[in-house]
Nucleic acid binder design. Sequence first.
DNA 1: TCTGGGGTCCTAGGACCC
DNA 2: TCTGGGGTCCTAGGACCC
Length: 432
Amino acid sequence: MLHLDLDAFFAAVEQRDKPSLRGKPVVVGGVGGRGVVSTASYEARRYGVRSAMSTREARSRCPHAAFLSGRFHAYREASRAVMGLLRSVSPLVEPLSLDEAFVDLQQADLPDLEVATVTAFAEELRGRVTEATRGLTASVGVGTSKFIAKVASDLDKPDGLVVVPPGTEQDLLRPMHVTVLPGVGPATAERLRRAGIHTVAELEQVDLDELVRLVGKAHGGGLFQLARALDDRPVVPEREAKSVSVEGTYDTDLTDRKLMEGLLTRQAGEVAARLRKSGLSGRTVSIKVRLHDFTTLSRSSTLGSPTDAAGTIARLARSLLTDLDTSGGVRLLGVGVSGLADWVQEDLFGDTAEEEPELPEIEIPHHSRRTWAPGMDVEHDELGRGWVWGSGRGVVTVRFETATSPAGPVRSYAEDDPALRPWTPEPAPEDE
DNA sequence: TCTGGGGTCCTAGGACCC
DNA sequence: TCTGGGGTCCTAGGACCC
C-alpha cells in the first residue's frame, strides 16, 4: 500500500503561483476575525504556525507572513493532476482529500513488491508528481497496510519517502504515542492517558474487554487491531456522498432572528444547488447552530420523500430554528441534507418546481463576502494577471505576477475600478 | 471578540413493528 | 399479571479526519 501526501499543499500552490512568496512564510485560511489556518508553509511553521490554529494567533506569531484566503480552483486543478497520475499507475486509488491518497500497489504494474522495487517505483512517482504539478513536492509512505503507509508518509516530511519493510511494523509503532492510531484524537487520548496508556506498546498490553470498556465497542475493537499493526482495510476508489452541507461562522454574533432566517435561506439555496449539480436529493434536513459560548446544537427533520428544492429545504431549516433559544447570540449557522438518494421524486402533478427563495435579498451588515479577498486572482485591462495583496478602506492593492511572469509591479486601485476584475479560470470539464 | 468548513462514523434513547 | 426480544428508523450529540 502506498500513501501520498502533498507537502503544505495549499501554501505550496500559492508559492508556486506567486513567485514573490517563495521562501517566505505563507498562511492559507480564514482571514476574517474568526478564521483559522488551513495550511502554513514550512517557513511559517518555523514560527509555530499550525493548521487549525486561529488566524489571530498565527498573525501574532508570524506578523510578516502573507495571509491568503485560498483559491480552491487552483487546488482542485493540482489535485486532479495528481489523482490522474496515480490512477494511471493503479486502478485502485482512494483520495482522502485534495492532497492525499492511498494507492494499492498490488494492482500496479510492478514486477514484484520487494522493498528495493517499491522504493525505486515510489521515488519515480514522487518525481512525476512534481512534474505533473509544476513543482509541488509529495511525501510518500509504503507499507503492508493503509495504516502503516500513512504512518510512514509522515516520518520524513517534507519531500520524503519511507518504505516500511514487512515484518518491522510493530517495532516501528510500539514506541509511538497512541495518537498515531487513526481515530485516536484528543478525547480518546485523554481517556487512555487516565488509564495509564500512552504508547502503542502500552496499548498492546490492554486486553479487548478492557479496551471496549474504555472507549466503546466499535472503537475498542479497531484499536485492539491497530495496536498490533493489524489492518486489512481495502482501498475504496469511489464512495457515495452521504450528506451535503453549508455552514458559516460570522465575524460578530447574530442576534436578529430575521437575519438568521435570511442566512439559512441563502445556505439552503447553496445546498440545493450542489445537490442538483450532483444529481442528488435527500430526505433529512438539518440545521446547525453554534451559540456565542460555542455550545453547538443541531435539529433535523425527515421528509417522506427526498428533495432538492431550495424552497423546501429553506422552509424546513427556518422552522427548525424556531424552537432554539438564540438570545445569547449565534456565531455559526449551517444547513445540511442527508439521507441522500441519487434520484429525484417524480413530479406526479407535472408542475415545474418554482425555486424562488421567498425571502428578499437581505442586507447583511458584517458578513458579506469580501469581493477582494487576499490572494485571489485578478485581471487588469492594461497590466494583465495579478493577485490581491490586500484591500480595505475602498482600496485594493494588486501584485502583478504569475507563476511564469514574476516581478511585475504593485499597484493600488479603487475597489470599484472597472479596469480590475476577479479572474477565474476556464470552467473545468464536467466529470464529477 | 480564542476556537473554519466539509465531511464520516458511532452512541444512545425512544418510537414502532413483528 | 408485571414489564420478551429483536430489528429498523429517527433524533441529538460527540469524536474524529483533512
